[in-house]
Design a protein around this nucleic acid. Structure first.
Lengths: 248, 248
DNA sequence: CCGTAAATTTCGCCA
DNA sequence: TGGCGAAGTTTACGG
């Protein structure tokens, strides 16, 4: 495909706020927070309506190179190549794609206003515990969420157990790591400094990594098993009850 | 575009190990480690040669949904829609894309064997320090890298200073956070338990977040400023010297 | 704009 | 295969 024609085609599509797919033989250079060089190869470049740029190789989930939304896009012909530059400031970064050949250019005005809903997140686990605190243990009463701690950090849930003892709850949607345990210990320390009493500290997660079990026991951290999926089920049941209540 | 034709076109392209781009109006469902629902909208689906699948909305750097390489891809016509399923085991996950309309299907056999080279990584920072330890301080002598610690974690560089004192070095390519400081404190504790002496602990990074400065001073962590870019320059100079030595 | 933490994080290394 | 940590992580949510 003639590069001058390609350039004009891309410029028009950008003006029309279309999503553009460019297929061709290119080299890619990136300079910014890091630097990278990718030698010649056949790839797909995507310029989205929000001026984000993606370079995808024929394999792999991740783009080899990219520029996030609102990058400044420049196009030019140089030395019989089509040069695509996408710049960003703060951090100052530049992505340069040099097309030696362009096989095809496609563009579409795409309309996509749909909501994206995600379930079984850590947030859902927290909601499930707040809806049914006995997941932690019988008599547990949450009284605060996302409490900011003195030096830094946030407690997921702060509450009291059936005997009135202050309890710190940390939630993870994946197996708890030694880092997670250390973090919870820090949080418990902060809470102790602030409240003047040593709180119970409970990690809620689908499991605990083997290497974290030691740290858990040493620091008297307790564990409750809860998966994101189970939490989502609890919330679905709650939603059903709410709807039923609404129909009465 | 006729959906039966679209289906046949995609199947053929998969057999030929081509990279496929499908543009159309679709809904997307994901069920696995989490769940998500994305209502109808116009998007680009990409099936790569390695059987990874990406769903890209008209904006944003990240795909709204995806399946990593080696997913099992199934296609069928159902209720006047084209259904694309990409399954994965371990973790068990399924991505379902329901196309109500397919505007265009494109596919190419792409050849891309080029090496991807990244510079100014944390690894480069470590190499720069090992090449020129005076970056840490005059007389610093590294004697081990990536030393495994007892409960968990790795020390980037272990060495001795000019007075022979054991020194732990942690490297970060970005401003050090309070989490990074805590991690280094844990590492220093581990090293102290193992060697029986309290080591110096130095964080090497382009800077320290304001909130982390307190934690740094409290824990007697020292700071040396080094950027990934500066490290890459040092390594380039070294490469130049090596080449020069080779020519002599 | 900084700080903090989640993410279907992915990816690569190494035991 | 699982653990471990980096990443140009990105993104979202506060203050």
């Amino acid at each position: 495909m003639d590069l001058a024609v390609a350039l004009e085609r891309i410029k028009q599509a950008i003006l029309k706020r279309e999503v553009i797919v460019i297929v061709g033989l290119c080299e890619v250079f990136y300079e910014g927070r890091a630097s990278s060089i990718l030698g010649p190869g056949e790839r797909i470049a995507i310029i989205k309506s929000d001026y984000s740029v993606l370079i995808h190789r024929p394999s792999g989930y991740e783009p080899s190179n990219w520029q996030p939304p609102d990058s400044k896009i420049d196009l030019k012909i140089k030395d019989n190549t089509l040069v695509l530059e996408a710049r960003r400031v703060n951090p100052s970064e530049i992505l340069t794609v040099i097309f030696h050949e362009v096989y095809q250019i496609l563009s579409w005005k795409l309309l996509d206003e749909a909501d994206f809903s995600m379930y079984a997140t850590e947030e859902d686990m927290k909601k499930a515990i707040l809806f049914n605190p006995s997941i932690i243990e019988e008599g547990f009463q949450p009284f605060e969420q996302e409490r900011k701690l003195k030096p830094s950090g946030f407690v997921d849930i702060l509450g009291v157990d059936s005997s009135g003892r202050l309890t710190v709850v940390e939630i993870k949607r994946r197996k708890a790591t030694v880092e997670d345990i250390n973090q919870l210990v820090q949080y418990a320390n902060s809470v102790e400094r602030e409240f003047g009493v040593r709180p119970r500290a409970i990690i809620v997660a689908p499991g605990v990594q083997r290497s974290a079990v030691r740290a858990m026991h040493i620091n008297s951290i307790e564990f409750r098993c809860l998966t994101p999926k189970k939490s989502a089920e609890i919330l679905r049941k709650k939603a059903g009850l709410d709807r039923y209540a609404g129909l009465e």
